[in-house]
Simulated assay, not measured.
Amino acid sequence: MRCIYPIATLFFIAFYCSCSSNESISEELLAEIGSENYFPLEKNNHWTYNIEAETSAKDSVWVEKDSLIEGEIYYQAKGNAQKKGFFTNLISSSLVAKSKSKLFLDGNISQLIPGLEIPVHNLTLLDTKSPLGGELYTNSGISTYEYNKYILHIEYTVSTKTEAVLNDYTLFDDTYNNVIKTSLTVNIKGILTTDVDGYELTIPVIKDQDAIISTQYFAPGIGLIYNEAAIAYQLSNLDQLEGKLPFPTEYSEVITQSIEDFSILN
């Protein structure tokens, strides 16, 4: 497969990537999609991605081993030490499994506020039988992060859905057929609690906001070929704090990863 060179800007992506989607999916196409493997998980399968964000990088991820857990075969993926891509961070810190038409994982979303982990269980990344626009997964919970006398409580909702089935998807010089496009969204809001002279002070510091919006493109026989993740949050009411927090109070970045090379065992 030809190498795909790093992406310089979002305009560059828009100019060189084209796709066409079906408003409805025929029975023939559904049958064809259902017979394809959209994320080969055999041991030693390997993918390399070009990463574009504030700095360019290259990520590698591979299937290291498999384990039988409660009757399901889970696969452990590993990645290079300094992973930058959103998807490579997610997949290499999780156990991944396939069940019938679904690809799902158990793990944590950690590429948001440093030190904060959002747990996910049976997070469905794609389902070849899901109707166009169908919701794949949704789950809500609360995660906390403690620093000195401050406790940050994050209320989150993680959801995924099928966005489109693309007959033809062209990424630079390579064209892929029957690509499934899915999305993953992490919505958050949060409060900060602290003790002031023996009294608990509660400060609403994060308004309801979509902090992560990630779009995945899966090609049959290959796996993920492209991912774009917009990650952003902003804290407010910080004038009520007596000290500084150990992480940025606002953050915004778009991270893209495009496949450069892969090795899939048959």
Score class of each variant (00 low, 15 high):
residue 99 S to V: 10
residue 102 K to N: 12
residue 108 N to T: 06
residue 91 I to W: 10
residue 130 S to R: 07
residue 60 S to P: 02
residue 18 S to V: 13
residue 14 A to R: 12
residue 48 T to S: 11
residue 120 V to C: 13
residue 107 G to Y: 12
residue 106 D to R: 15
residue 65 K to H: 01
residue 32 E to V: 08
residue 128 T to I: 02
residue 128 T to C: 08
residue 121 H to P: 00
residue 140 S to D: 10
residue 59 D to I: 06
residue 47 W to R: 09
residue 25 I to S: 06
residue 89 N to H: 03
residue 10 L to P: 04
residue 101 S to T: 14
residue 46 H to I: 11
residue 61 V to T: 04
residue 30 L to V: 01
residue 123 L to G: 04
residue 66 D to H: 06
residue 129 K to D: 06
residue 57 A to N: 14
residue 116 L to D: 05
residue 72 E to C: 05
residue 108 N to G: 01
residue 18 S to Q: 11
residue 85 G to H: 00
residue 24 S to K: 06
residue 16 Y to D: 11
residue 17 C to I: 06
residue 76 Q to P: 08
residue 41 L to W: 05
residue 24 S to D: 05
residue 86 F to P: 13
residue 124 T to K: 13
residue 40 P to L: 05
residue 60 S to I: 08
residue 19 C to F: 13
residue 32 E to T: 12
residue 134 G to L: 00
residue 8 A to Q: 14
residue 99 S to R: 14
residue 64 E to K: 10
residue 72 E to V: 10
residue 51 I to Y: 10
residue 31 A to M: 02
residue 84 K to I: 04
residue 125 L to F: 03
residue 48 T to D: 04
residue 23 E to A: 11
residue 93 S to A: 09
residue 106 D to M: 00
residue 124 T to P: 03
residue 70 E to V: 04
residue 78 K to H: 15
residue 11 F to V: 13
residue 134 G to S: 04
residue 75 Y to A: 05
residue 23 E to T: 11
residue 138 T to D: 01
residue 84 K to W: 04
residue 104 F to P: 12
residue 39 F to I: 14
residue 129 K to V: 00
residue 26 S to I: 00
residue 54 E to D: 04
residue 71 G to Y: 15
residue 61 V to K: 07
residue 100 K to Y: 08
residue 92 S to H: 01
residue 43 K to C: 02
residue 58 K to F: 09
residue 88 T to S: 14
residue 82 Q to F: 07
residue 104 F to Q: 10
residue 8 A to N: 14
residue 93 S to H: 08
residue 94 S to E: 07
residue 76 Q to G: 11
residue 90 L to H: 03
residue 72 E to Q: 09
residue 115 G to Y: 00
residue 18 S to F: 12
residue 134 G to N: 02
residue 116 L to I: 06
residue 141 G to A: 07
residue 67 S to I: 12
residue 41 L to I: 13
residue 77 A to Y: 09
residue 79 G to V: 06
residue 58 K to N: 11
residue 56 S to E: 12
residue 29 L to F: 01
residue 102 K to G: 12
